[in-house]
Design a binder for these strands. Structure first.
Lengths: 227, 227, 227, 227
DNA sequence: GATGAATGAGGATTCATTCAT
DNA sequence: TATGAATGAATCCTCATTCAT
C-alpha cells in the first residue's frame, strides 16, 4: 500500500456514499479474484469458466460481470495484484542489486524468492503459463510478462551494465523462459526431488549468466563447480 | 475380384482384426492429420476443435470419427508420426554419440536439428506444449514427452556415463524443459533475432551440461567463452 | 432493496446452499416439466431429446440446463411431481384400506383411479414404461417404480396380512406389471372398447388376488362370475 | 423346413449360378440376423445401431444394407424367423387343442413353452417389447404381435368356442399383454425367484381365463385353489 | 456382392455473456 | 448492486444411410 495507491480514499469521484459502495465493491473484487485464483490453479486458465469462478466466489455470474468486463480482465487484474503483492513482499526486489553481490548469491536468492512466491500463490504459474501459440501473447499474460521482464532486466542490468539494450532484453527473456521451465518441473515434484530441481534451476541460470558477467571479479569459479 | 478375394466363399469367420484400410482411407488419415497439425498450430491443442479439424480437412465431422475415436487419438497419432519422421530424418539421432565429440558440438548440432525439425513441423511445438496444470500430463503429450526424454537421456548418457539414473533423468527433464522454453522464444522471433535466440539456447544447454561432464578432457574451456 | 437485503453488508459467507430460486425460475421449471411431459408422451422417454423439450418449452437449450443437469433429472423430477400429485389427489390412497372392503371394490376403485390419473397425466405412462432390457432399470424409472410398488404393497397388505414379505413383494410386482400391461391396452383403445379393457383389467387383478385372500369372508363368489 | 420353403432350391429365378449366390446371401442374412439378435438383446431395439449390428456380424455397413433396406426390416425379418422357428418347435402349437385338455394344463404348458422359447431366443423379448407410445405400434413389432395374437386366439378359441370375435380378440390381447408383463418379471429374476414368477404368471392367466370357460366341465375347481 | 469411406443432421452439454427484476 | 434467468453458438460425438470402388 504505497502512497500512490491510497489516493482513491481521498478523492470522492461520485457524490453519495462512495466510501461504502467502494468498500463493498473492493471486497467483492477481492472475493472474485481469490475465487479466480483457485479456479485458475485447479483447472488452468483456458479451462476456467467464468461461471465456475462466480460459483467459487459464491456470487452470481451477473455480479462477476459487474466488476469485470470479461474473463481476460479478471486474469489481468489478478496478475496486477500478484505483481503488486510481489513488489510489496520483496520491495523493488529483483531490482538493481549491490554490484558487489556475487552472481551466485543473487540468482539463488531470486530463484528462492520467486519459487516461494509461486508456492504461496499458485495462480501465478497459471497466469504466467504463456500463450498456447508462440508469438500470440494474450493480453492477460502480457502485462504479467512485461512486468516480470522489466524486473529481471533491472536485476540483470546491475550485473551487465555495459550490455546493449537488445542483448539485455534477450537475456531477460531467456531467464524468464528458463525460470518458467524450471518452475514447471519444480511444481511437478515434491520433497527432495523438488529441492533437487530447484538446485538445478539455479545452476542453469548461474552458469548461463556467469560468462556474460565474466570480468567482474573472480566470480567464475563458482560456476565451474559441479553439483 | 482377383483370386485372393474369392476365399470369402469359404466363410472366413473374420475375427476382430484391424480392419484393412483402403488407400483412400490412408489418404484421408494423412489429410486429417495434416489438418490437425494446422489447427493445432494455429489455435493450440486445447482450443482446437474436432469440427474445426474436419472442416480444415474438407470433410464432415463423421468422417473424422471414422478414423479417430476422439481428439486425443488424433494428437497421439500425429505425435507418433512426428516422432517417427524425426527418427527417420536423424536416425537414432540424439542417440549415443561418439564420446570424442566435444559437448559443444553435440549440443549445437542437436539444437539445430531439433529446431529445424520444429520449424518444418510447427505442430510439434503445440503437442509438446505441456499440461496447463503441472503434474497432470495428458496422454497425448505423454507419449511424445516420454520419447523425447528417452532420446535426450540417450544422448546424455554418452556424456555422463557415470551419472546415477535419477540424476540422469533429472538432467534430461531439465534439458527438455530448457529446450522447450528456448524453442518458444525462437519461434516467437524472426530473422537475426531468431538466430540470436538459437545461439542463447545453445549457450544455456552447453553451460548447464559442461560442468556435469567436467572431467572428460579439457572441454570446459569452451563453456567459459562468452558470446 | 428492502431491509432484509442489506445484510449483505455483513458479508455472509454464503455456503453451498440450494440457491434460492426466483419465481420466474419456478415458472420455467414448471414450463419445462410440462414440455417434457408432452415430449415424453409424444415420442417416448428414450427418443425424447433435451433440445426438443427446450424447443417445446419455447426456451433455449441452455435454459433447460440451468435447471436440470441432464435428461434423467428431468424425468426424475417429473416423476416425483406426478407421484406427489397422485398422493395429493388420493391421499395415501392405495394405502391400507378398511379390511372390510370387498376386494372387488378395492381393486376396481384403485384401477379406476389409476387409470383416471394416467389419462390426466399421460406422461406417467411414458415414465413408467420400464427398461428396454429386463433387469437394467434406469434411475429415472426406478424411483417411480419403487413408489408405486410400495403403495401397492400397502394396499395388498391389508388384504394379505399374513403373507411372507417376499410373497407380498412378488405379488405387488405382479400387480404392477399386470396393471401396466392393462394400461397399455386401455390407452390404445377408445370409447366402449377402452371401457371393456378397463373391465378386463379389473377382472384380471381381482381374480388373481381373490384366491390369495381367500379365507376372508365369502368374497370368492365375485371372482367366479364371468363377464 | 417344411415343403413349401424348399421350393427356392428348385426354382432358378436368375440365370447364372443363382444357387451359389443365394447360398452365400442366405448365409450372410443369417449371420446378420444372428448379430442383430445379439445386439437387440444387449442394448434393446431402440438403442441398437445398424453399424453395431454390422460390426457384430463382422461385415461392413454397406453389406448390411445390401440385404436389408433399413433397421426396421432387420427387426421384421428377425421376428419372422423367430415366429417360424417357434412354429417349427411347437407345430401349430398354441393352436387349437384337444377341448378335453384342462385349461390349467393347457395354459401351463403354453407358458412353459413360451418362456423356454424366450430364454432360448432372448431377442424375442426385445422385439416383442411394445411401442414406447401406446397406439403407435411400429411395423417391426406389429408383425410379431399379430402372429402371436392369432396364435393365442387359436388356442383360446378351443376353449371359448362361443365367444364373440371381438371378445375373443380382446381376451387374446389381454393374454398377450399379461404374458409380456409376466415375462419381463421372469427374465428379471433368477433361480427360485424366477420359478416363482413363472408360477404366478400361470396363476394369473388361469384365473383370468377360467371363469370365461366356466361351463366346460368341472374345471373351475382348479382355479379356486390358492398357491 | 462386399467393402470401407462419407455424410450431415442431430444428440447432450457447456459457456461467455447479457438481461430483467 | 446483486441476482438468477436467459441466450445461442459451439463442443464432442453418433448414427442411419448412401456412395465409390
Amino acid at each position: 500500500m504505497s502512497a500512490n495507491r491510497d489516493k482513491d480514499d481521498q478523492v470522492h469521484q461520485e457524490k453519495e456514499q462512495p466510501r461504502r459502495r467502494q468498500a463493498r465493491g473492493e471486497r467483492r473484487i477481492a472475493q472474485l479474484l481469490e475465487a479466480a485464483a483457485t479456479v485458475f490453479t485447479t483447472t488452468g486458465y483456458t479451462a476456467a469458466s467464468t461461471n465456475a469462478i462466480a460459483r467459487e466466489a459464491g456470487v452470481s455470474p451477473g455480479t462477476l460481470y459487474q466488476f469485470f468486463p470479461n474473463k481476460e480482465a479478471i486474469a489481468i487484474e489478478l496478475g496486477d495484484r500478484l505483481i503488486h503483492e510481489m513488489r510489496e513482499m520483496y520491495g523493488e526486489a529483483l531490482a538493481p542489486v549491490d554490484p558487489a553481490t556475487p552472481l551466485e548469491e543473487a540468482v539463488a536468492s531470486a530463484v528462492d524468492r520467486f519459487i516461494a512466491f509461486n508456492c504461496a500463490h499458485p495462480a501465478f504459474f497459471a497466469l504466467m503459463h504463456g500463450p498456447d501459440i508462440p508469438g500470440r501473447m494474450a493480453e492477460e499474460h502480457d502485462a504479467l510478462h512485461a512486468t516480470l521482464l522489466s524486473r529481471i532486466e533491472g536485476l540483470l542490468s546491475s550485473f551487465l551494465p555495459d550490455a546493449a539494450p537488445a542483448d539485455l532484453a534477450r537475456t531477460a527473456h531467456m531467464c524468464l523462459g528458463l525460470y518458467k521451465a524450471g518452475l514447471e518441473l519444480v511444481l511437478a515434484h515434491e520433497g527432495a526431488e523438488r529441492d533437487a530441481y530447484v538446485q538445478e534451476l539455479k545452476h542453469v541460470l548461474i552458469r548461463y549468466l556467469d560468462p556474460l558477467v565474466g570480468d567482474r571479479l573472480g566470480r567464475t569459479e563458482a560456476a565451474r563447480t559441479a553439483t
